[in-house]
């Protein structure tokens, strides 16, 4: 019985360690972000962000598709997305430089991101949105049909 408990604890410990030591080949999170992220919600954001960009950098766009906002996936099929991402098949090194919650809604985060790759060295700001406990990536609006008319 003692052995069984020991093994169980060891397994739990190993699972814990493996989660802690999750490494990314292409994604780096700056120390500033790591220091400023104090809330669990921010930690889950960093993990989702890293998973998304790691998948994208590995050209695993099928996996990346699941991180896009639900309504964007509702409007655009996976086939369309894969076709859309054809031109994005490049390896990037991505650094998460800064995260800024929206001043009026902490379910929205603006992420300052550095992209470094072949013929590319640029900082961009991305929007991520928290929907029912999950962070989702928002991709460019320009690819969508026109926005609905303003109410004011």
């Amino acid at each position: 019985m003692k052995h069984l408990i020991s093994i169980l604890l060891l397994v739990i410990f190993m699972i814990g360690c493996s989660k802690e030591s999750k490494t990314y080949q292409y994604v780096t999170v700056s120390n500033d972000v790591l220091k400023s992220a104090t809330q669990p919600k921010e930690h889950t954001f960093i993990e989702r962000f890293s998973d998304y960009w790691e998948a994208s950098s590995l050209n695993d766009f099928e996996a990346a598709y699941a991180y896009e906002l639900p309504y964007l996936n509702f409007l655009k099929s996976l086939d369309w997305y894969l076709d859309f991402k054809k031109t994005a098949k490049r390896r990037y090194n991505i650094t998460l430089l800064q995260i800024t919650p929206d001043s009026k809604d902490d379910d929205i985060i603006y992420a300052r991101v550095h992209f470094d790759g072949k013929n590319l060295d640029v900082n961009l700001t991305e929007k991520w949105i928290f929907i029912n406990d999950i962070w989702y990536h928002s991709y460019s609006q320009s690819i969508l049909p026109p926005k609905p008319p303003k109410l004011h």
Partner: peptide, 21 residues
């Protein structure tokens, strides 16, 4: 069928469109 996550995410990503004077 449009589920609530889809609707809510559309609203949150386009919030400025729902500004009322």
């Amino acid at each position: 069928t449009i589920n609530d996550d889809v609707l809510l995410s559309f609203y949150k990503d386009n919030k400025d469109e729902y500004y009322k004077n």
